[in-house]
Computed example of a mutant assay.
Amino acid sequence: MTIKGLFPLILTILLSNSTGLVAANPPKNLVSPTKPKAASTHKPVTQPLQPKWKLFTAPDGRFTILMPGVPIRNTQAQKTHMGVINLQLFVAQPAKQEVAYLVVYNDFPYSYGQMANPQDILNQARDLALKTTKSNLISQGNIRSSNGHPGKEIEYINSAGKITKARMYFAQGRLYQVMAVSSKKQHKTLAKTIAGYLNSFQVVLKTGNI
């Protein structure tokens, strides 16, 4: 049994949401030109406020993560050979920044979750992410969640220059994908923020399940 039919559906949702989200907003001319030495009645122009990062807890309580505001949720049911799979997507984008922060997860049927090899699932997720987004892999490595579940960290860039840094975990029959998609221009300046975002993700184990 494979899960190849599922990942393109996840990635299609991610692409349809993140493509517009990470597009740069055109700058606005906030200061009107004035004559030299003329008294100005305009209020001083202030810099855009930095996003307020808050701890977000999933509606079902199964994960927590720091988000720049309340993320937008998108739920979509997809038919697969395993049955109906519900995809849950949470996305947030700070104003005036060329970055989108996403968490997407899906639960597998119980029988499949019992039989599946976690590394196979993670490797398929990596390969299909690269193929579907037509991206080149920059780096990868095996990781584990704070409570010991297997994971993988990857970073890749597509032809448009969008860089995605993602961490994926397989825990209790659920695949989590935690991503930050940024422009190449802002990737370096946002590196510490993205790292903090990814580090803040915590899987909350559901008692009574494996």
Rank of each mutant, 00 (worst) to 15 (best):
P150M: 08
Q177H: 10
V84Y: 00
N158S: 14
A58G: 04
I10C: 05
Q97H: 11
A180I: 13
H81A: 13
R144M: 12
G151L: 06
K52H: 07
T46S: 12
D60I: 03
A160K: 03
L21M: 15
I121Y: 01
M115D: 15
V99L: 14
W53Q: 02
Q119L: 14
L198A: 08
K165M: 06
F170G: 02
P44M: 11
P71T: 06
L21N: 02
Y197T: 00
L130I: 02
L14V: 08
V181N: 08
N29I: 15
A171R: 02
M168E: 10
N29T: 15
Y101N: 11
N199I: 11
L49A: 12
I194A: 02
R167Y: 07
G148P: 13
A166D: 07
S183W: 08
F90K: 09
Q124L: 09
A38C: 10
A100Y: 00
Q50F: 04
S16E: 14
I85L: 08
I138G: 05
L190A: 04
A92F: 02
V45R: 10
L205V: 10
K206P: 01
F108S: 09
K131R: 09
L130F: 01
A100H: 02
G148E: 11
K162Q: 06
F201C: 12
T189Q: 12
K4A: 14
G83M: 03
A160L: 07
A171G: 03
P94C: 03
S145F: 06
P150A: 13
I138Q: 13
S146Q: 15
S200E: 09
I121T: 07
R174A: 06
P150G: 13
I13F: 04
I72W: 01
F63L: 11
Q140V: 00
A160T: 05
S32P: 02
K206M: 12
T207L: 13
T75K: 13
G161W: 15
Q140N: 05
F108D: 02
Y112N: 06
Q50H: 04
Y101D: 07
S32M: 11
V70H: 10
G173C: 06
G148F: 07
A77S: 14
S40E: 08
S183N: 15
K134E: 13
K162G: 00
K4T: 11
T75G: 01
N123I: 07
A38T: 12
F201H: 12
A125V: 01
S139V: 07
K134Q: 15
T57E: 12
N86A: 14
I157R: 11
T207P: 06
P51L: 13
Y105T: 08
F63S: 07
I72C: 02
N74V: 15
S139C: 10
K152I: 05
P36N: 04
W53I: 00
L198I: 08
L190N: 05
P26R: 06
P68E: 04
K206N: 11
L130V: 01
S18P: 00
N106T: 03
S16R: 14
L66W: 09
M168C: 11
R73M: 04
V84N: 04
Q47N: 12
A191G: 00
D107G: 05
I154Q: 00
